[in-house]
Amino acid sequence: MIAANVMTNTPITVNENTPVFEVVDLLLDLKISGLPVLDSNGIMVGIITEGDLLRRSELGTEIKRPHWQELFLGPDKLAKDYVQSHACYAGAIMTARPLTVSPEAPLDEVIGLMENNNIKRVPVVKADKLVGIITRVDILKALRTILQRDRTPERAHEKNTDDNSMQKEIIDRIHSQPWAPKSNIRINVKNGVVDISGAIWDENIRAALITLIEEVTANGDICDHLVFIEPTTGFCIAKNG
Rank of each mutant, 00 (worst) to 15 (best):
L78Q: 00
L78S: 00
A79K: 08
A79Q: 07
K80D: 03
Y82E: 00
S85R: 02
C88K: 14
Y89I: 08
A90D: 00
A92T: 04
I93H: 01
T95S: 07
T95H: 09
A96H: 10
R97L: 04
P98H: 06
P98G: 04
L99A: 04
L99N: 03
T100Q: 05
T100I: 12
T100G: 06
S102M: 09
E104F: 02
A105R: 06
P106M: 00
L107V: 04
D108Y: 00
E109L: 01
V110D: 00
V110R: 01
V110A: 01
V110W: 03
G112F: 00
N116E: 02
N117E: 09
N117F: 04
N118V: 02
I119C: 01
K120T: 09
K120V: 01
R121W: 02
R121C: 06
V122I: 11
P123V: 02
V125T: 05
K126N: 09
L130T: 05
V131T: 09
G132S: 07
G132N: 11
I134Y: 03
T135P: 01
R136A: 03
R136M: 02
V137P: 02
L140G: 05
K141L: 07
L143T: 08
R144Y: 10
R144K: 13
T145D: 14
L147F: 15
Q148S: 13
R149L: 07
D150H: 01
D150Q: 10
T152D: 05
R155K: 12
H157L: 15
E158D: 12
K159M: 13
N160H: 15
N160L: 15
T161I: 15
D162M: 10
D163Q: 06
N164E: 12
S165V: 14
S165D: 06
Q167W: 06
K168R: 13
K168Q: 09
I170K: 05
I170Y: 05
I170R: 05
I171H: 02
D172W: 08
R173D: 13
R173W: 04
I174S: 12
I174L: 15
I174R: 08
W179C: 11
A180L: 03
P181W: 12
K182L: 10
K182V: 15
S183L: 15
R186N: 14
R186V: 09
N188S: 14
V189G: 11
G192T: 08
V194C: 14
I196Y: 04
I196F: 08
G198Y: 07
G198T: 13
A199W: 06
A199P: 02
A199C: 11
I200T: 13
W201V: 02
D202C: 10
D202E: 12
I205R: 08
A208Y: 07
L209E: 09
I210F: 03
I210R: 05
L212I: 11
I213L: 10
I213N: 07
E215A: 08
T217R: 13
T217I: 14
A218P: 03
N219Q: 08
N219R: 06
N219W: 08
G220H: 11
D221C: 14
D221V: 05
